[in-house]
Computed example of a mutant assay.
Amino acid sequence: MLSRPLDRSWLTPPLVAFLLGILLSPHGLGWLNPSAWGNVYTLLEETARLTLGISLMGIALRLPRSSYCCAACRSSRHYGPGCHR
């Protein structure tokens, strides 16, 4: 519904998300106010963990399956009895 007009415009999806975040922030319309939800630093830490976990999982899913075996063999040579091929 919104993707076709967005594809034709000069706005990119990250820019739209950024502008929407500014609009909804406490400095914009004030609809989202994280300081009212509790400890801001704990909220920031947990959000950062979730974001990092999602991005690492996305990277891991793009790696070819053969790279897991090679990495395991290299690691086992350093930490264990080694890999026998």
Rank of each mutant, 00 (worst) to 15 (best):
P5A: 05
L6S: 00
D7S: 14
D7A: 15
D7L: 14
R8Q: 14
R8L: 15
S9Y: 08
S9M: 11
W10G: 00
L11I: 15
P14M: 05
P14H: 03
V16R: 06
V16S: 02
A17H: 09
F18Y: 15
L20V: 12
L20Q: 05
G21D: 00
G21N: 02
G21I: 01
I22D: 03
L24E: 00
L24N: 00
S25Y: 00
S25R: 00
S25M: 01
S25A: 10
H27C: 05
G28T: 01
G28W: 02
G28R: 03
L29F: 11
W31Y: 13
N33L: 11
N33D: 15
W37L: 15
W37H: 15
W37N: 11
G38K: 02
G38E: 01
V40Q: 13
V40W: 07
Y41H: 14
T42K: 09
T42D: 12
L43W: 06
L43E: 12
L43Q: 14
L44T: 08
E46I: 08
E46R: 13
T47F: 05
T47P: 01
T47A: 15
A48I: 07
R49V: 04
R49I: 06
L50N: 06
T51M: 14
L52H: 08
L52F: 10
G53H: 01
G53K: 01
I54W: 05
L56Q: 13
L56H: 09
G58M: 04
A60Y: 06
A60I: 03
L63G: 02
L63E: 05
P64E: 09
S66V: 04
S66R: 07
Y68G: 00
C69A: 15
C69K: 15
C70P: 00
A71L: 15
A71N: 06
A71I: 10
A71D: 03
A71Q: 09
R74K: 14
S75A: 12
S76V: 02
S76Q: 11
S76T: 06
S76L: 13
R77C: 06
H78P: 00
G82K: 02
H84D: 06
